[in-house]
Amino acid sequence: MNKKVILYSTKTCPFCRLVKDFLKQNNIEFIDYDVGEDREKLDEMVKKSGQMGVPVIDIDGEIIVGFDKEKIKEVLGI
């Protein structure tokens, strides 16, 4: 069963890039919002995570802040 994965990132953030690479390597589809450009999505990210650091990953409603590889694997079940 495919989980819905949303990534909130900025162009310049190194850990955002690591998350993207990781998801691609594992063939996980995801939606990527550039919160440096998209103010609405930035507000959404802050609301969901209660903080302003990127990256934030939303996997079927479960929120992970930062590139926490083990946690991402666990939530995705991979």
């Binding site: 900025t10 162009k11 310049t12 190194p14 955002c16 440096g36 650091g53 990127v54």
Partner: peptide
């Protein structure tokens, strides 16, 4: 508060 301008400046 942030310690990584590269990461967070765009926000």
């Amino acid at each position: 508060i942030t310690y990584c301008a590269t990461c967070d400046a765009p926000l």
